[in-house]
Amino acid sequence: MWEYNDKVKDHFLNPRNAGEMKDADAVGETGSLSCGDALKLFLKINKSGRIVDASFMTFGCASAVASSSALTEIVKGMTLDDAEKLTNDDIADYLGGLPKEKMHCSVMGQDALRKAIRSYKGIEILAKPGNTICECFGVTDLEIIETVKQNNLKSAEDVTFYVKAGGGCGKCVEKIEEIVESILAQA
């Protein structure tokens, strides 16, 4: 059954700013068909570096659509510098919280936004930094480390909820546990 709150449901059933933007100044794409969710974010940016409009196209579950919708609402009117600091938590908070298993939907929003801004600023997006840990979802050790630190994650299961790593065949779960434990040990 759906454990979504009314705000998430509302953003799924009545998504804000859904659809392609033909004259976008920046586009950020993340996810893939095989992963089961994907987001394409479009931004309109004025000369002083402020986001004046945003729209999205999303393939995925209800919380993916709702997170995308929320993201576009949040970033409209923001400066690029502020937008770059936006985290997945800001998206989840705006929606009044997401089920834990669905946090990866908000992470997807953060990721697409950063990609859009970097491409606009002309920063080259390298192939994913770090070594791939999860083959099923193409997640690297550096991504896992960043997510664990940013969200104070405590277990491999948490990591799966946030970035999906470990949620496919499950072969990498032990490696993810090691990463989480080494971070917890440092803290």
Binding site: W2, F12, L13, C35, G36, D37, F59, G60, C61, A62, A64, V65, E101, C136, F137, T160, K164, G167, G168
Partner: peptide, 27 residues
């Protein structure tokens, strides 16, 4: 995606299942 389809079907009172990840807890 299946979960989204099911949720909209639910709005029309139609009960079915999906073969998708999102509804089963696995990815």
């Amino acid at each position: 995606e299946g979960e989204s389809i099911l949720l909209l079907m639910d709005q029309s009172g139609i009960c079915a299942s999906s073969g998708s990840a999102c509804t089963s807890g696995s990815l």
